[in-house]
Each structure stands twice: as C-alpha cells, then as structure tokens.
Design a protein around this nucleic acid. Structure first.
Lengths: 342, 342
DNA sequence: AAGGCAGATGGTAGCGCTACCCATGACGTC
DNA sequence: GACGTCATGGGTAGCGCTACCATCTGCCTT
C-alpha cells in the first residue's frame, strides 16, 4: 500500500510527505518549522498536525547541506577528566539543552597539533559556533578559527587579543592573590607546586612569582613543577620533593586542588601540622576543599559560569547581537579556610 | 580570475574542482578518498596531488546526506562531572582519535526523558554508532535504539537483554564483594551510604544487602541514602546522619569514592579512628583513594577499558564483524587498603 | 572467433532540505 | 484607476556528495 521508498532513505517521512499531507508546498512546511511567525496560524496548525501524524523529524544532514550551516556547537577542551573542564562543559550543556543544537566535543590532550587537527575536522561541517579552551592557539589554529565563519568563544582565560570573544578570568591575578594571602598570613618560605604546567598554570606561577618578588621572598628553589598530568598522587610526590629540597618550607601554593589534596594527605601521613607548620592553598575550589580536614584555602574560579556565558554570547552573536565588550572577565574569589589560618 | 562561486558555498573547493584538476570524474575522486584500493595507483596519486594543491576537504554534511550515514559516534552519559564517566569518555576518545569519526556527546542528567529527547536528536542524523550508559532505558528509548539502524553499545553494566552489545561489570557483585570484605575483616554494624541512587547504585545496594543478609547482619536502619547528587560534602552529611541513627556503626560501605572521602574527612574532624572505630570502603577506586590518609579500600572499576572496548566493538560491528558474545563483563577488583585494615 | 568476465572509470540521478525569486491578493496612496 | 507595499505562499534550482548502473578495456575461455 505505502508508496515505494527510495533505495537510500530508511523510509522515514520527508518534508515532501508532510507537505502533501497538509496540502501545502514543501517550502511552507520548512518555514512553518523554522520561522513560525511567517506562516499563517491556519496553515501552521495544519502542518503541525501532519508532522505529528507522520512523526516527521527534519533531516539535520540535509538541512546542513542546504543551508550551509549545521546546528552544531563545536567544543574543544584539553582534558575530559580534569573536573575544571567538566564543569565548564556542564555550563555549556545546561545552556544548550533547550535548543536544538547538538554538541560535538573534541579532546585536545593539551596539544596544539591535536587542536589543529580537530579544528580541521570541525570546520568543514560549518558549525554554528565554536568554543575553545585557552587563548594560546597555534598560528594555524588561530587562522582556522578566524576563517571558521561562525562565532568563536575562547574560554577559561582573558587576554588582549581575542579571535572573536572571550570569557574567563586572569590566572596571573589568581596566582598572585593566593600567594599574597599566604604572605599576609605570615608564611615566608612559600613553595609553588605545579603539574602539567599548561599555559594557565604558567600564568599562575608568574602571579606567584610576582607576589613573592614584591615581598622580597622569591627563591627559585621554592618552585617544584613537572610536565606530568596532575593528580592527587602527584601532589604527594611533588610535595615530598619540595620538602627535601627546602626543609624550611612553611607553605605551598598548589597549582590546583588535586595537588593540594595530595599535599594535605602527605602532611597527615608525615604528621606535619596544617596550618601551623605548613600552610596550603589550592586553586579552583573544588567541592572537597571545604570538606577536607582541615578545610583548604583555594581560589574559587567561575567554571560553570564561564560555560553558561560562553554559550549565551555565542547564541547572541548567532542572532546578530554582538556584545559591546568581546572580552568578559568573570573574576575569581579567594576562599580563606583552615589550611592557612594561623 | 577564480570562477564565481555559488551563493551558498563559502568558496571552498568541492569534489568537482578536484576532479577537474585531476582530469578524472568526480566519482573517481570520491572512490580514491574512501576506497583507495579500487582506484589505480596512477590516478590515486594524481588525485592526491589535486587534493593537496586545492586544500580540498570533503563536506561531511553532503557526505552524510548522500550516503545516509554520518561519521559520528553518538555518546550518552548521565553526568559530565562524575569522574567515572569522564574516564569512560577518555577511553572512547582515545580509541577514536585516529579515525575520522566525530563524537557527539549528550548529557542525560540521569533522566530517562532527557535520554529519549537526545536519542530523538541523534537518530535522524544516522550516526555510525551509539554508545549509551546504563541498561535501564525506557521502552521508548529502547525502541529508538533498536531502530537506530547502527551498532549500539550499552556500557557500565552487564545484563541479560542487550539492545545490541554491552560492556561493563556487575554492580551487584561489586557491592557484594565490598561488603563481604568488610564482614570478613570483622566489621559487624556496617552501614550503606549512598547518594543519587541511580540504577547502578541500587544494584550496589542490593549486593550490600545480599551480603549482609547472608551473614545475618542486615538491618534496614543501617542504610542511609538520598536522591541528591553525590559529592564529598554530601558524604560528610550522610555519615553524620547515619551515625546519629545508629551510634554503634562500626563501618560504612560507600556508594562511591566521593562519599567515602567525605566520610573520611568527617572521621578526622570528629576524631573517629579509621579503621579502628570505623572502617570505610568506597567504590570506583579513584586516584585519590590510594593517596588518602589512611588510604581507602575501594572497588576498582574498569572505566577506561569500558570506553576503549565499547568503541572497539562498535567499530568491529560497523565493519561487519559482530562479536561472538555481545555482552562483555570486564569485572572489577577489590583494593584492600588501610581504611579497613584492622 | 565469439563469448564471458573482472577491473577500472564515468554519467546520471538523486539524498532532503533551503536560498532565491516570483505570484497572488489585500490594502493603501495619490 | 494606476501604482506601490506588505503578507503569504509556492516553484525552481541547487547544496556537494555518493548509489546505482553503464561503459570500456583487456584478458581468459572454449
């Protein structure tokens, strides 16, 4: 009974089926679905009925081809397991869940080359927007972003020269604020412990250094870093190294909270009093920092908000409403807790 | 000089441009790119040159429309911030990074309705494969998966009735093993503390109950759960509740490691000796469990491997090589540590 | 020598949708 | 009454690619 379907289509109803059933032209169905305001009330209802009866769902691939625009947000993060990016992603997803945009997520593994490769994969799809972590793209990546023909939001950091838009905060200032807090509290031999040392970590280190130098406390031996990916385990090990190198250490500013937690556990294990003998400050303020014993001082970063706002800005740009100020600094907050309360 | 491009295409070279330049038919270019073996050595080289010179990249949308198949893996997870799924994702990404498949990631927020919505969005795209977390799909979701027309892998758990394929382990057995370990170690009033209580948590609880009943130790008042999402903070609070309810508590099996960490911190804070007064067992064995002080006993789950294998199975199925056994149980491992060593 | 067959290449006709342009009618303006 | 303008709807022609089928060549059978 049913009319024979073509070889390729799986037999799903097409826009032509809906048009036939509703007694209108295909283009009118297309309009009714995308710009309901431009179709009369009557036809709109009629078309909706046909859509419901047939269970019609537009083919996103055909749409993308015809309109040279895919309803896809491309998102590039350097790591999936780093919970910092997980929360940015959560913000992105929450802001996009009401829309029909799909999200294509790429993992750059902190590699510029991998980022280039992924942009090369994303580009030809003509995504509706691109959200990328970081501001230190390679020249090739930057060119790919500039020629992507869609809004681009760089997130996590702020800087002077956005490809298009930026949402983040200053890691330098964060590192500086954390260090200054420890200095004010009375710590003197404050170490810096960092892993991975991606560009953001480097800037936190620079902030640490600026604060230490300003106070006349800087000493290169206080710095302990590694390119190895960050983990709680690594925090413990780096702390041991730092202490072996500088036995007079009386505080540590940790590149992130995982490291800080590792330091705290090692202090417990070695019966080093926190905050009395050693003060600890982390970075990011993960949930567990407040619960830890003693609770750990950290820099609260607006990760979720960065995700939300990046999408809001991208959607506004898609709608033609470019923001007055393309770079938004969401700031951070120093959370003073027991680990530096002496 | 360049010939005028159509209104829509952004001026990118198309397959026709490559064909013209190489002096062959468009279809031969298409074949050279997708099935090099079917084109003669000579033409292949010629075409490759033209591709390189023009910087040609195939349009994935046109490809998807013409072949009724998008080079996209659809992945559905219930949470982005739960590091358990982050590691599954990492496995998926690592296994797919050499291929040209893109990954579309959906976040179901532990909601069956949201899962249905996302499947409805993914379906019309004709993805190459679908990977979904969990085995408790709604009837609608199940139908959508069955009619997706592509390989489907359910991950994280094993069960008797796969939609297509499954990779995971038994959460019931995991909960049972953890509880039996505590019983054998001498704990008697062992509480269960759980948050979120999604289907996997429920099965861990069932395993706990089975072990406790078998030992004649079960008491419903030992169970403390909440539908609230899991966090370290919540672990502390639920432990306080549990202790208030059953002051004679001498151990807890925690639904996951976040909870266990919260319990550990609360024990520190309240000067409760671990493992002497209270034994603690977690679930998943995150990195930090081994570093914690005291280190925390946990069930190591093969999260990364689940991600890897799910992709391997999907790719094999795409290539027409269906596995002998569609359900793969990757097991788990009990990691005995200081938190239950008395 | 006729037929068959496999391998390599090309032509045609879409895939399902939307951009662009046009047709129509109702209403206003001078 | 001729002419715009606006709102509404439709027709046509692609978007860039691949499925399907046809063609052509060379070589093997018999």
């Amino acid at each position: 009974m049913t009319k024979p379907r073509s070889r390729r289509g799986g037999g799903r109803p097409t826009i032509a089926d809906v048009a036939r059933k509703a007694g209108v032209g295909a283009i009118t169905v297309s309009r009714a679905l995308r710009e309901p305001g431009r179709v009369s009330e009557d036809l709109r209802r009629q078309i909706q009925e046909a859509v419901d009866e047939l269970g019609y769902l537009p083919d996103p691939n055909a749409r993308a081809l015809a309109s040279a625009r895919a309803e896809v947000f491309g998102v590039l993060v350097p790591s999936l397991t780093n919970s910092v990016f997980a929360e940015v992603l959560r913000g992105i997803y929450d802001s996009l869940s009401d829309s029909s945009y799909r999200i294509q997520l790429g993992n750059t593994h902190y590699s510029g080359l991998e980022e280039e490769r992924l942009l090369q994969v994303f580009g030809p799809q003509r995504p509706a927007a691109l959200i990328v972590a970081g501001i230190d793209q390679t020249p090739t990546s930057r060119r790919l972003l500039e020629t992507a023909g869609c809004p681009v939001v760089q997130v996590m950091e702020t800087g002077p020269d956005p490809v298009d838009m930026m949402v983040g905060f200053s890691h330098f200032d964060g590192g500086k604020a954390a260090t200054e807090h420890m200095i004010e509290t009375g710590y003197r031999r404050i170490g810096f412990i960092g892993a991975r040392m991606d560009p953001r970590s480097q800037r936190r280190l620079a902030g640490y250094r600026a604060a230490m130098e300003a106070a006349g406390l800087f000493d290169a031996r206080l710095i302990t870093t590694t390119p190895v990916p960050s983990s709680v385990t690594l925090g413990r090990e780096l702390f041991r190294d730092a202490l072996a190198k500088v036995p007079t250490l009386d505080g540590v500013f940790c590149n992130n909270d995982d490291i800080a937690l590792g330091v705290l556990f090692e202090c417990h294990r070695a019966s080093i009093a926190v905050p009395k003998t050693i003060g600890i400050t982390g970075f990011n303020d993960l949930d567990m920092m407040e619960v830890a014993f003693p609770s750990i001082t950290s820099i609260r970063t607006p990760r979720y908000e960065i995700g939300r706002l990046s999408v809001a800005m991208a959607l506004a740009a898609i709608a033609g409403k470019r923001p007055q100020e393309p770079v938004v600094d969401l700031g951070f907050e120093l959370k003073c807790r027991e680990s530096t309360a002496r």
